[in-house]
Design a protein around this nucleic acid. Sequence first.
DNA 1: TTGTATGCGTTATCAT
DNA 2: ATGATAACGCATACAA
Lengths: 336, 336
Amino acid sequence: MVTIKAIAARCGCSPATVSKALNGAPDVGRDMVKKIRSAAAEMGYIPNGAARALKTARTYNLGLLFQEFSHSGLAHEFFSLMLNGFKSRAEELGYDISFISSHLEGRGFSYVEHARYRKFDGVAVITVNYDDPAVRELAESDIPTVTVDYEFPGRGCVMSDNDQGVADLVQYVHSMGHRRIAFIHGEQTAVTRTRLAAFFRTCGQLGVPVPKGYVIEGVYHDPDFAAVATERLLNMPEPPTCILYPDDISYMGGLEAAERRGLSIPEDVSAVGYDGIAMSQFLRPSLTTMRQNAPLMGARAAEELSRAVTEGRAYSPERIVIPGVLLAGETVKRLK
Amino acid sequence: MVTIKAIAARCGCSPATVSKALNGAPDVGRDMVKKIRSAAAEMGYIPNGAARALKTARTYNLGLLFQEFSHSGLAHEFFSLMLNGFKSRAEELGYDISFISSHLEGRGFSYVEHARYRKFDGVAVITVNYDDPAVRELAESDIPTVTVDYEFPGRGCVMSDNDQGVADLVQYVHSMGHRRIAFIHGEQTAVTRTRLAAFFRTCGQLGVPVPKGYVIEGVYHDPDFAAVATERLLNMPEPPTCILYPDDISYMGGLEAAERRGLSIPEDVSAVGYDGIAMSQFLRPSLTTMRQNAPLMGARAAEELSRAVTEGRAYSPERIVIPGVLLAGETVKRLK
DNA sequence: TTGTATGCGTTATCAT
DNA sequence: ATGATAACGCATACAA
């Protein structure tokens, strides 16, 4: 392996000078720099990240806690796209990204311990499971942290505008003439609570009553559960005319349930998804849904984290809200 | 930050002894070990990965070159699932995983350079673009490497059984009575070549002629292109009765094209996808396709790479083939 | 402008 | 069983 010392020997100077020359220090002679640079290139010198990290306490490496919690092996497009956005932007900004896990070299490690072991410059958390104590511990440590779709006091975060998203959907459905709107929502998370509040608030504002049984707690990304919930709704004496699903995948379960009982969407019952996955627009009828801007969310998270890292003590956290866009498909029927 | 030295001071012994005790060396006294261990725990000691890497030349960190090349911002479920599988298994095996990119700390870096800089124990390549010289350079370096869906001489790899996959599909379509089978395939890659060969071979074995114009080179994951290609096929004087698409997403474009001209699948024309993404089974008609076992592919890649790393010079590369499974949906009509 | 010296935190070798 | 010492590769404060 070619080291700084080897270059020094070759150039007849000291390692210190080589280091400076390679790092663009101002106090090295013009031609010495040239000589060193070309020697380094010729010899195929690659700096040693570990050595540098040890010395400088900077790694240019960001930790990413990424948990999909995908039921039944489904990949979650929303998370994949966020990952992509985060990765691309972080790389542009000069950072590497490594996954944070809870085991390393055999021993068990908490997330923070892992992050410390690797000396990540900062950490991004992209998950749903912010109640996990290990996650909280990480976010509340002294390591620069950015979260997605959850807010920790004093930390930067990127939020999908779930409030506006649900409000928009409800308003749209209302504008299409619906007055009996049901809401199947995901398990209790911060996102879910936001969406629920928006649902009740908007219904209230529009004077739309929410009968008992119209709001059902389900599970994200679980078509089977959605099917069951849909059954339950359609069995009611006064069934809804429109059902909001927790996500586009869940909608598929609802669709199946409706078809099983000979009902068609949107003729007999209307439906709305959430996420706006690519497939939603290829479906027939195409799905009315809220497209979350996942790639942008990931990218902004990278930027915010970079800011947290470089600004250090002077960093003041921002709460970045990314709006979604309503995709008006064909699954909501216009009622007379 | 609490170091090994601090523990030594607290325990009244030397750093060397602490290191040994913590690493389970046999030559440390029973109670000394206990004393050190508990002190370390109490003080919240976390080893410094950089220091350790510097000393031992082992990082327990795997590099992952992961390129989706997703057109139009589509997430590619196949790749996402592979990533998941790789990540989970690698973590179980005690490794961290970091993405390999081409820029770090501002400067440009080739993939190998990046890998050397980070001193990855090994490297996995999950991409389509094996013609990229930078990718080749990485795979041909002295760093333990495993590739997916591409084989480098002397290196381990995990292959989806594209040959059998296409053969199975053609045979199935044939068994359903089809004799005019068209094949829209993706851009020229190793995978594509394998699939093409399997297509021609199987058609030959079955005595199914492949008229000029029935095989069209397209683009993976591009519904628009698939639509155009479908048009072209359906405009032929003797159009095919069944069309094989390069993937499930492309099928959606074909479906649209067919519908636009008033044809329905499978009544007027049959169709087959590839990948077996989750959505394919929710579609109506449900898609006949070849499910690739992406999670397993990723997991096996991690295992093979781990083997390459730990066995060192004694490692003999394996070529692991993962079969797919035919999902017989409703898009292939039985011909009289 | 260049070089010397020191230390980052750890492990490994060799004495004791 | 324990410790002193050196070294991994690099960057920096300071001396020359």
